[in-house]
Amino acid sequence: MILFVKLLLAHLLGDFIWQPNAWVVDKEIKKHKSIYLYLHILLHGVLAAVLAGEIRFIPYAVLIAVIHGIIDIIKLNFQKEKNKRTWFVVDQIAHILVLIGVVMIYQHNIIINFWQDNAFWILITGLLLLTKPTSIFIKIIISIWAPESQNSHQDNSLIAAGNYIGILERLFVFGFILTGHFEAIGFLLAAKSIFRFGDLNEAKERKLTEYVLIGTLLSFGVAILTGLIVQSLLLQLL
């Protein structure tokens, strides 16, 4: 675990702290022809080797640097202005997965049989249930109460922001339950109520207030129920 933490630190230093904006701009313009791309790759390799602190890790540091460069080249050649955010997320996830893979290989822990790990499947099912499936379920349930003026308020909102907020709050509640921090759920609900108060007060519509309240309670209710069920199933595996 400590090796992964060190490699993650090396990645953060190389990709964010010690990468000037001038390098980023030059890479986006010249792509694989940019000298800064290769300096960036070299920096990642050096940082991984130095922070790992073991001479025998040097070949693995070279492997990390090479794969990092390949991922960056793919991103630079396929990203456009309209999909930069998507490629940034994909790029970072790919780099993290590479670090995890290298750590597993280095520590001779290559095979992890997820297919026979019941706890893994229970957790994954619970997590996925609280994302889009629950959003659709709640949307269908409360659609009969949707106020007509709701659409007028969406014009001033971020696209699909409400959906993502709902998913995040359910995942937070799920995590709080599994870690035994039930008091944090009350804090999260209170924080959301405070932020929503201004919007609802401005709307001055009882129907909209009730509509939002029903959606919030359903969201928290499903998250709490799912968390308790998953927690119970995990305890049975012990």
Rank of each mutant, 00 (worst) to 15 (best):
I2C: 03
K6A: 06
H11K: 00
D15F: 00
W18M: 12
V24I: 14
V24P: 07
V24E: 07
K30F: 09
K31W: 01
H44R: 08
L47F: 01
A49W: 01
A49V: 02
F57C: 00
Y60D: 08
V62D: 00
V66I: 13
G69R: 04
I70D: 09
I73E: 00
K75Y: 02
F78L: 12
Q79K: 11
K80R: 15
F88R: 07
V89H: 07
V89T: 13
Q92N: 13
Q92G: 08
I93K: 02
H95L: 04
L99T: 05
I100R: 11
V102L: 05
Y106C: 05
Q107A: 08
H108A: 13
N109K: 14
I110E: 11
N113S: 09
N113K: 12
N113H: 07
Q116F: 03
D117R: 04
N118K: 15
L123W: 06
T125R: 06
L128E: 04
F137R: 07
I138P: 14
I140K: 15
I141Q: 13
N151Y: 13
N151R: 11
H153E: 04
Q154E: 14
Q154M: 11
S157D: 12
I159E: 11
A161N: 12
I167A: 12
I167K: 11
E183M: 05
I185Y: 02
I185P: 03
I185H: 10
G186V: 03
F187M: 15
L188C: 11
A191I: 00
F197T: 14
N201D: 07
N201C: 10
E202H: 14
K204H: 12
K207D: 14
Y211K: 05
L213R: 08
L213Y: 10
L213C: 06
T216F: 02
L225C: 14
T226H: 02
L228M: 10
Q231E: 13
Q231W: 04
L233G: 13
